[in-house]
């Protein structure tokens, strides 16, 4: 369970997050949606223990990410950043292998190599594994980064706009894989920022909608994805259709 209470975050004079309180139950996919600048990334950074909030508290399964030792935190929660500076000369395998660092701290064991290979297989990266990252396409690179986060083998997985630069097929594959993960027996919990509302509609179990540093709506997919909520959220009218038992959203 992720619990956030009274969380505020200022950057200079600007309030990015305003007194947020929410809880995310384990299991399944929780999608964060909302217009640009709503504070989704900032919230994720605070939960991941990377940015200290101005006030308020965060607990991941009862632990404070800011007082927990760094590597222990990273064995419990993995975070995929939005945009990645690429280190030259790093191969895909090298990159994915870094996901095991919190587990071995610089002295890799055989099981770490095995976990790396498994992550490469899971994201169909075997053929690319010896290629340097800088020659890959944006989508391939993104898959390598997700695979690294996956190799971290954490109960919690936080992803900030992972579908950026992915073509429809790989976007679909990624979401399906996250879906499988989050409903498998060892139950990994996924929190993901999405700009594609229909991806959220198709794959998410819960949706949290944010606007102006506050929570605008939260709940099950059908509760949040209504014409009224979406109109207020994006200041644009939407039609909500139904497709395959799930909502399908189009702008009017």
């Amino acid at each position: 369970m992720i619990k956030v209470e009274g969380l505020s975050k200022n950057a200079g004079a600007v309030e990015i997050l305003k007194d947020l309180t929410l809880s995310i139950p384990p299991g399944g996919i929780t999608a964060l949606i909302g217009p640009n600048g709503a504070g989704k990334s900032s919230l994720l950074h605070c939960i991941a223990g990377l940015d200290r909030p101005t006030s308020g508290m965060v607990r991941i399964d009862g632990t404070d990410p800011f007082s927990c030792p760094d590597r222990e935190r990273a064995r419990h929660l993995a975070f995929l950043q939005q945009s990645q500076p690429v280190v030259p000369r790093l191969t895909v395998r090298d990159m994915v292998a870094f996901g095991r660092w919190p587990h071995h701290g610089g002295r890799p064991r055989p099981e770490d190599a095995e976990a790396t290979e498994q992550a490469l297989r899971a994201f169909e990266l075997e053929d690319l594994s010896e290629r340097p990252l800088e020659v890959l396409s944006g989508g391939q690179r993104q898959r390598a980064l997700v695979a690294m986060t996956y190799a971290q083998a954490t109960p919690w997985l936080l992803l900030d706009e992972p579908l950026n630069a992915l073509d429809p097929r790989h976007a679909h594959d990624l979401m399906r894989r996250l879906n499988d993960l989050s409903h498998a027996a060892d139950e990994r919990s996924v929190v993901v920022v999405l700009h594609d509302i229909n991806a959220a509609a198709r794959w998410a179990d819960r949706i949290i909608a944010m606007k102006d540093g506050r929570i605008a709506a939260e709940g099950l997919v059908a509760e949040v994805l209504t014409g009224e909520v979406l109109r207020d959220l994006y200041d644009t009218p939407f039609d909500v259709l139904v497709h395959g038992g799930r909502p399908l959203v189009v702008t009017v």
Partner: peptide
């Protein structure tokens, strides 16, 4: 950020 999310001090 990446290094910190991997648990590096």
């Amino acid at each position: 950020d990446r290094a910190r999310s991997l648990g590096l001090g």
